[in-house]
Design a protein around this nucleic acid. Structure first.
Length: 353
DNA sequence: AAGACGGGGCC
DNA sequence: GGCCCAGTCTT
C-alpha cells in the first residue's frame, strides 16, 4: 500500500482536496459549530440516508433535544416519533441508549478515544472515526461508501467494496493520507467529493480537484469502479393489513422491539401463503377474539423494503363496539389521534386507501 | 461471511 | 419500472 503512494502524490491529494473542500463545502446545520453531540446525531442520521432528507429531521431533532442531556431524559416514544419516516429505526433506539450511557458513565461527555466510543451502541468503525476526527481533531479514518468509491477510483482498486477486508484496506489507506493539521476536514473532504463530484454514476471528473492523480480517470475506468457484488433481490411476501374499526375508531398495534419496524406502531398485519388469505384472517380474528361483523377488501398495493417485497391487501374488519378486550399492545385511535404515535410508512400508505 | 434492517432519488 | 444509494448489529 505504501508502495502505491509516493510522498508527492500524498501531498498533492491533501492539498488539493482540502483547498477544494474549503471553497466548496455545503453549509449544513451540523457544520456550523464543533459539537460532538451534533456530529454524532448527524452521522447516525446520515447512515444510508441522503443529506437532503436528513436536514429537516436534524433541525427538528435539535429543537426538540438541544443537548445530550435533553435526549437522554426523553421518553423513547418521543425519540422514535422524531425519527418517524427516516427508516432503520434501530439507529434511533441505539442512539438513545448510547446517549443515556454517556450521561451515566462519562458525565455527559462523548468519549474522545476509539476504545470507549466504539463500545457505544450504534457506533461502528465509520461513525467512531467520523466523530473522533470531526469533533475532536483526531487522526482517525472514517471510511463510508463515498470514501470507498473515491479510493477505488483514485487508486484504481478493483476489490469488492462489500467485503470487510476491503474496508480495512481502505482504512489503512486513509490513515496514510490523513494530514495532522485537519483530519476532520480531510475526512469530510473525501466524503464531500464522493457526494458532489465522484458520484456513483456519471462522475464529474472535469471538475475534480484530484483529477491529475486519478488512476481510474487515466485508465478510463471511472464508470466501472467501484466493484461491488450485487445484492440479492428482496424476498416476496403476501400480507394482509387489517383496519379493525368501530365507527371512527380503529386499532393499532405496538410492534415487538426486535425485527422489522421494531418498536413502532403499525396496523395488525398477517402473513399468508397458498391463497389462504381469508382462512388466515379468520383464524387470526378467532385467535385474538375479535368480534368481527363484516370484512371488506379496500385495496391492494406493493411495498418494497430493502430486503422484503410485500404484496399487501388492505382489509377492513368491522366490530360492534370498543368495549371488548383488545390484545396486549393494541389500542384504539382515530384519524385525529393517529398523528401522536409513530407509524411506519407502509401503514400510512395503507391508511390512504 | 451473510442476512436483517427503511426509505428515497434518478433516469 | 428498474436501477442505484449503504453502516451496524446479529447470526
Amino acid at each position: 500500500m505504501d508502495c502505491l503512494l509516493s510522498e508527492e502524490v500524498v501531498a498533492e491529494i491533501r492539498r488539493s482536496l482540502l483547498d477544494w473542500y474549503r471553497r466548496n463545502r455545503r453549509d449544513l446545520p451540523w457544520r456550523r459549530e464543533k459539537n460532538p453531540y451534533k456530529t454524532w446525531v448527524s452521522e447516525i442520521m446520515l447512515q444510508q440516508t441522503r443529506v437532503d432528507t436528513v436536514v429537516p429531521y436534524f433541525e427538528r431533532f435539535m429543537e426538540q433535544f438541544p443537548t445530550l442531556e435533553a435526549l437522554a431524559e426523553a421518553p423513547e416514544e418521543q425519540v422514535l416519533k422524531a425519527w418517524e419516516g427516516l427508516g432503520y429505526y434501530s439507529r434511533a433506539r441505539n442512539l438513545h441508549a448510547a446517549v443515556k450511557e454517556v450521561v451515566a458513565n462519562y458525565g455527559g461527555k462523548v468519549p474522545d478515544d476509539l476504545e470507549r466510543i466504539s463500545k457505544l451502541k450504534g457506533i461502528g468503525p465509520y461513525t467512531a472515526g467520523a466523530i473522533l476526527s470531526i469533533a475532536y481533531d483526531k487522526k482517525a479514518p472514517a471510511v463510508d461508501g463515498n470514501v470507498m468509491r473515491v479510493f477505488s477510483r483514485l487508486f484504481a482498486l478493483t476489490d469488492d467494496i462489500a467485503k470487510v477486508s476491503t474496508r480495512k484496506k481502505m482504512e489503512r489507506l486513509a490513515e496514510t493520507l490523513i494530514p495532522d493539521e485537519a483530519p476532520g476536514d480531510f475526512n469530510q473532504a473525501l466524503m464531500e467529493l464522493g457526494a458532489l463530484i465522484c458520484s456513483p454514476t456519471s462522475p464529474q471528473c472535469l471538475f475534480c480537484p484530484v483529477l491529475s492523480v486519478c488512476d481510474a480517470y487515466r485508465l478510463g475506468m471511472e464508470e466501472e469502479l467501484p466493484r461491488k457484488k450485487k445484492a440479492k433481490p428482496p424476498t416476496e411476501e403476501e400480507v394482509a393489513i387489517l383496519l379493525i374499526t368501530c365507527g371512527m375508531h380503529f386499532l393499532v398495534e405496538k410492534r415487538p422491539d426486535q425485527g422489522l419496524l421494531a418498536g413502532l406502531w403499525g396496523l395488525p398485519t398477517i402473513g399468508w401463503s397458498d391463497q389462504k388469505e381469508m382462512e388466515s384472517i379468520l383464524e387470526f380474528c378467532d385467535q385474538k377474539q375479535i368480534p368481527a361483523t363484516k370484512f371488506m377488501i379496500k385495496g391492494q398495493f406493493e411495498y418494497i423494503f430493502s430486503h422484503r417485497h410485500w404484496k399487501v391487501t388492505v382489509m377492513t374488519v368491522e366490530t360492534p363496539d370498543t368495549g371488548w378486550e383488545v390484545p396486549e399492545n393494541w389500542k384504539w385511535v382515530t384519524k385525529e389521534t393517529i398523528g401522536e404515535i409513530t407509524l411506519a410508512n407502509v401503514y400510512h400508505k395503507a391508511l390512504q386507501l
